[in-house]
C-alpha cells in the first residue's frame, strides 16, 4: 500500500488508488525448491505475481518439468496452454502452461521461451488435455511441438498461410486468395483498412509481413 498520510476516515480498499501487485522472488516455495533440485539449471526462475507461482524453465526440460509436477506434486489438471509473442526478444515466443493440483488447491504457471522455428517438447504424453491447445498454439503462432500426435491447424483451415496471433500479422487480415466482392476490392486484394469496412487500426503493426501469400494449390 502507498505511504500517503492517513486520511481522516479510514479508507476502504476500493476507495484507495489501486496498488498494483509486484513480482516477488519465490525461490523458497516448496514446489519451486523441489523442481529446482530435480531440474538443476533448467529452472531459470521462480517468481510470484499476484499470488500465482510462475516457473520459467528451459525448452528442453519443459516436458520433464511438467511431468515432475504431475507425478510428485499432484498437479494433475492441465488448465490451459497458450503462447505469447514478444517479437523484440531473441527467442520471440513464450509457451505458458497453467497446471492445477486438487490436493494442494493451487495453480502454477510454467513458462518456456522458444525462438522462431524452434520446437518445444509436447505435453501430450503427460497430459492428453494438451492436444488441442498445442494445436491451437501451432495454428496461431507457428510454434512446433515435438512428438505431438496430430499437429495440424485447428481453428483455421489447412492451407492458410500465416500465423494470426503473431504481432506482425495485420489485424485486417490478409488476402487468402478468395475473390470476394470484386466490385469493391481490386482483384485478389482482400479487405484494405479504411475503405468501406470502417476499420481503423489504432496501433498499426510494426513490421509488414516479409512475404505475401503463396499460391493456393
Amino acid at each position: 500500500m502507498s505511504e500517503a498520510p492517513k486520511p481522516p476516515a479510514e479508507l476502504a480498499p476500493w476507495e484507495r488508488e489501486p496498488a498494483a501487485p509486484q513480482w516477488q522472488e519465490a525461490a523458497d516455495d516448496p514446489v519451486a525448491l523441489a523442481l529446482g533440485e530435480a531440474l538443476g539449471e533448467a529452472l531459470v526462475s521462480a517468481r510470484t505475481f499476484a499470488g500465482d507461482l510462475t516457473l520459467e524453465v528451459r525448452r528442453e526440460a519443459f516436458r520433464s518439468a511438467c511431468a515432475a509436477l504431475k507425478e510428485r506434486h499432484d498437479f494433475t489438471l492441465l488448465v490451459d496452454l497458450c503462447g505469447v509473442d514478444f517479437p523484440k526478444r531473441e527467442e520471440r515466443f513464450e509457451v505458458v502452461v497453467h497446471l492445477y493440483s486438487f490436493s494442494a488447491n493451487r495453480r502454477v504457471r510454467v513458462k518456456t521461451a522458444v525462438g522462431e522455428g524452434g520446437e518445444v517438447p509436447s505435453l501430450v504424453p503427460v497430459y492428453p488435455a494438451a492436444n488441442w491447445p498445442e494445436r491451437e498454439t501451432w495454428d496461431m503462432f507457428g510454434i512446433r511441438f515435438a512428438d505431438h500426435p496430430d499437429l495440424t491447424r485447428i481453428l483455421l483451415w489447412e492451407g492458410f498461410n500465416g500465423h494470426p496471433l503473431r504481432k506482425d500479422f495485420p489485424v485486417e487480415g490478409i488476402d487468402t486468395g478468395a475473390a470476394i466482392y470484386p466490385e469493391y476490392y481490386e482483384a485478389r486484394q482482400g479487405p484494405i483498412a479504411g475503405t468501406g469496412t470502417g476499420w481503423k487500426v489504432k496501433n498499426p503493426p510494426a513490421a509488414a509481413p516479409e512475404s505475401g501469400p503463396e499460391e493456393k494449390k
Binding site: 476500493w14 484507495r16 488508488e17 489501486p18 498494483a20 510462475t54 488448465v79
Partner: peptide, 28 residues
C-alpha cells in the same frame, strides 16, 4: 476508485478463472 486511464504495469500477467455454467472459464 480507479485512475482515469487504466494501465497495466509492464511485464505483468495474471490468470483468473471463474466457475461458469460449463466449467472453468479463465482469462490469461
Amino acid at each position: 476508485k480507479r485512475p482515469r486511464v487504466l494501465k497495466a504495469a509492464a511485464a505483468t500477467e495474471a490468470y483468473h478463472a471463474v466457475e461458469g455454467p460449463k466449467g472453468e472459464l479463465g482469462f490469461y
